[in-house]
Simulated assay, not measured.
Amino acid sequence: MGYVIDRYEARIGSGQLTPDPVQAEAASALDDLAHRLANRKTGGWFSKAETVTGLYMWGGVGRGKSMLMDLFFEHAPVAARRRVHFHEFMAEVHDRLDAWRRLTPDERKRSEWRVKGAGDDPIAPVAKQIASEANLLCFDEFQVTQIADAMVLARLFDALFERAVTVVATSNRHPDDLYKDGINRPLFLPFIDHLKTHCRILELASDRDYRLDRLIEAPVWYAPLGPEAETALEAAWDRLTLGAEPQHCVLTVKGRKLDVPREAAGVAWFSFEELCARPLGSRDYLAIAANFNTVILSGIPKLGPENRNEAARFVALIDAFYEARIKLVASAAAEPEHLYPEGDGSFEFERTASRLHEMRSTDYLAEARVEIDVDAPRD
């Protein structure tokens, strides 16, 4: 029985996917992993569970990594499993570490936290807690950009692997390039070694960027607002996610939670109200840009002095996306040059309108996302 390859070939047969030998190789690798998980030794009183080598799939945007991992996750023969955006997972890890530090010495002796020899180090107790919840972790958009994450990853994953947790991940970067040029990177390098020991590294080196194909085959700006525009956005979502399962995740920005109601395969969907009618700022928008390659934004209204705060946030949003070369698909009340037609602020908005037009060009859509440091000082 094929856990992944049969479903992958069925999608090709139905016309949902185009045959791709690189994707087929990845599907076979995931299928092999599923069979090894099905046959693993679970351990007992006097023996540990068998550690099963996972899979780290990396490659450019639009190669189908998330779609393949979703096929694997849906059918993997593991009851205790979890699929999560990597940024959200690390935010939860820091929350757990903080929760452990607030415990009294007696509370730390409770069974769910107690780890022999842990002392005052919360890493092993947190790893124990995570492993008790899932022994298969599937991470989407695996990347390391923050020093707080980099400094705990080696010890955390070492403890997870020691507890026979299997990891499957998708990423745009080879492990050797994770946290590249980061502060104190030598302290991070042991994590890379651990990852390469416990995961097979597989590059999806297809020459074809399926997302770019799907971006340029249809408009990315739909105006005016109405049922036709929203139907077009739904169709764009289906094209760009390559059939990956939509998820909900939460980004953490300077201790604040930023809800992402719908994301898959590096694509996030927001409404204008969610991003521009709330007290968000450049760091929030840069956090989105750091975690997703493409954003679908629905319901951009006409702008003017009467909603100047929303307009200012929209300008900051577009600036952040433009800086990171994020791809934008949107529905709006009008074409960019007519969104803010008159009144105080209309002249300044012309720069944003120009950027929105450039962001629709084939040259812009073909550009790779620029890695940005969310925590870097900004004007």
Rank of each mutant, 00 (worst) to 15 (best):
V250R: 09
D176A: 15
A236R: 08
L160A: 09
A332R: 01
A49N: 01
D375Y: 09
I296V: 06
S346M: 03
K254N: 15
P341T: 02
T252E: 09
E371G: 14
D98C: 00
H174K: 06
Q143L: 01
E245Y: 11
S346V: 05
E74L: 12
C138V: 14
Y222R: 05
F139G: 08
R278L: 13
R369Q: 11
L33K: 02
D363S: 07
L153I: 15
A148V: 14
F321P: 01
A333E: 05
D379K: 13
V167C: 06
Y340A: 02
E74P: 00
R278S: 12
I372M: 06
F157A: 04
P336V: 04
V115H: 11
V315T: 13
E9K: 14
V315E: 12
D193H: 12
E371D: 12
Q247D: 12
L225Q: 05
G119Q: 08
E25H: 06
T252N: 11
E25N: 10
E350L: 13
W113H: 14
Y322D: 03
A118N: 07
V93F: 06
F73C: 03
D238E: 15
S282V: 15
A131Y: 07
M57K: 05
T145G: 02
D207L: 11
G60Y: 06
G13E: 10
F270C: 04
L233S: 02
L103C: 01
G43W: 08
V260Y: 08
I183E: 10
V295A: 06
S132P: 01
P377E: 11
V253K: 03
E234G: 09
G299C: 05
R102V: 10
Q23T: 06
K41T: 09
P301T: 09
G281I: 08
R110M: 05
R211C: 04
H338M: 10
K41W: 10
P261Q: 13
I12S: 02
